[in-house]
């Protein structure tokens, strides 16, 4: 009985941690996407200062969660996002609207991909 209880406890802890991780991932990527959209909206409204400020807030937010994300996700995927955020900020600063939109859209897709990666879905499992 001790072995059964122990093994079931480990499985429950794993399932519980996985569920919390999945929710946390959705929250992080949701917040990051909101920063991108806000920055894009500021750029559309020709408010470059606000756009840069929001993009830098995104960078700060992303780096703040980097440690946690690196402990659960492949590092290569996170590195790609870090590079895109950097390109996004540079594009806003230089006023290259096409690059801003391209990098903004790419970031949204990358964040969505991260969130979906940890969801308990048949598609992911298969």
């Amino acid at each position: 009985m001790r072995y059964i209880t122990g093994a079931l406890s480990v499985l429950l802890v794993i399932i519980g941690t996985a569920t919390v991780n999945s929710r946390h991932m959705v929250a992080i990527t949701g917040q990051a996407t909101a920063y991108v959209e806000e920055s894009l909206a500021a750029e559309e409204a020709d408010s470059q200062t606000d756009a840069v400020q929001t993009a830098r807030a995104l960078d700060h937010f992303w780096n703040g969660h980097r440690g946690y994300l690196e402990s659960v996700l492949m590092h290569a995927e996170l590195d790609d996002i870090t590079v895109t955020i950097s390109d996004f900020i540079s594009a806003i600063e230089t006023g290259d609207k096409d690059a801003v939109h391209a990098n903004g859209r790419l970031l949204c897709v990358q964040f969505q991909h991260l969130a979906e990666l940890e969801l308990f879905r048949i598609g992911n499992i298969l």
């Binding site: 794993i14 941690t17 996985a18 308990f120 992911n124 499992i125």
Partner: peptide, 10 residues
């Protein structure tokens, strides 16, 4: 994490 858990079981 949940994916690797499910994949492992399968």
């Amino acid at each position: 994490m949940v994916t690797s858990f499910a994949r492992t079981l399968i």
